[in-house]
Design a protein around this nucleic acid. Structure first.
Lengths: 213, 213
DNA sequence: CATGCTATATTTGTATACAAATTTAACACG
DNA sequence: CGTGTTAAATTTGTATACAAATATAGCATG
């Protein structure tokens, strides 16, 4: 398959939004974006339609869009949804998780451990790779798609978690615990670890957002 | 605000998919759609991008899309997600539900009661209006958007629920019970009624799909 | 008859051009 | 000054045109 400009743009724009490289609280001009990414307005429009539906953009004025502002209420919702949906997805995955999957997950965790402590965005990406790798065996497309979207929306908030200095090591421990539970095929424990993992991250983030936004 | 062709198309295409008016299990040709709806391919493309991201379409070949086939696994996921998310949303809404809201909900229920027994699609629309009306006061955009998407995806399966003859009256009773619980400001009861309402509908649908698909 | 290759037709992807709508700015009036 | 109104500039919406990719059909070869 040949990747189209729209497909690349979709990823690129998400990346640039997460990295804060695009103007905030103001209309995203199609012309500007087209120039910036060296394409015409058509693939830009295709991309914006998708991002709007994904919840990355909100309306600005009557016909423009802007980057959806971060806020604690959205963050709360996103984590609350993840809190309920991800354990469900993991539950479906567990019977299909084999040695290969566990190996991959372990590899990702090692990369995460050896990643630059400063590169919070790289860590966010690896974090999602880890979860994704464990959810994929569930083979539940509808559920998986929704969880993926939620995860990516959460990624926009990752800059704020940097603040909590001990977040990463906590997270690391929880990941290890999850993997251990899966190796021992202890469904209940895995479920509990994952739930707590998300709950803690969510609560920490929301607490921080409420005081800082 | 002036509705663009893309906006109308988005609704129209969903409508036509639910009503089975578009070719199934084969690529949706942009040219064909453009002719059918009397527009150029540009608004068609905008619309398809959105629908693809919403989960209404899946890939067909390398670059085309087709209507996402109905299947029991997706249906199970959709209802399972709704089962967890909607009570959450209602919980947020309850403190903000006032007489006006309850009145509107009651009106919709009356319309539903007096609707043509055959017009299952009209009933589906009113059913969503009822739920939507109760969820709106929650003022939780992220959660509301996800629930809305799930509801609309479920709407594609509504044709199958016609089969269960007593579905509508059951549903009607549950709606009334929910409204009563809300009038009495009984959170716990409202939550329970809603949960059961979704669980029963989902189980019934999935059971039917499994034997008939 | 099956299989792979090539040429052709179809379809999607993208750019350009123009129309319609919206936003901005200028200005008159109270 | 503030406010409403109109004209200009900007921006989005859509059509048309063409390029790139993909799917189809026909043919050759084993």
């Amino acid at each position: 398959m040949h990747y189209s400009k729209t497909d690349s743009l979709y990823l690129q724009l998400k990346h640039d939004i997460v990295h804060g490289k695009l103007p905030q609280n103001t209309a995203l001009k199609q012309t500007l974006l087209a120039e910036r990414y060296g394409v015409s307005r058509i693939p830009i429009r295709d991309t914006l339609q998708r991002l709007k539906n994904d919840g990355w953009l909100s309306n600005h004025g009557k016909s423009s869009v802007m980057i959806r502002p971060l806020n604690s209420s959205d963050a709360e919702d996103l984590y609350l949804m993840r809190l309920h949906l991800e354990p469900m997805l993991l539950g479906h995955a567990i019977p299909n998780i084999n040695f290969e999957t566990l190996g991959k997950a372990q590899d990702i965790l090692l990369k995460l451990k050896s990643s630059e402590p400063r590169d919070i965005l790289q860590q966010g990406e690896l974090n999602w790779q880890f979860h994704r790798c464990l959810y994929l065996p569930a083979d539940r497309p509808a559920l998986f798609d929704t969880v993926t979207q939620l995860h990516q929306l959460c990624a926009r908030y990752i800059g704020f978690q940097e603040m909590e200095l001990d977040y990463l090591s906590h997270s690391q421990n929880e990941h290890e615990a999850l993997l251990t539970a899966l190796r021992e095929d202890d469904r209940q424990k895995a479920n509990k670890v994952l739930t707590e993992h998300i709950r803690i991250a969510g609560e920490q983030l929301v607490r921080y957002l409420k005081q800082s936004l």
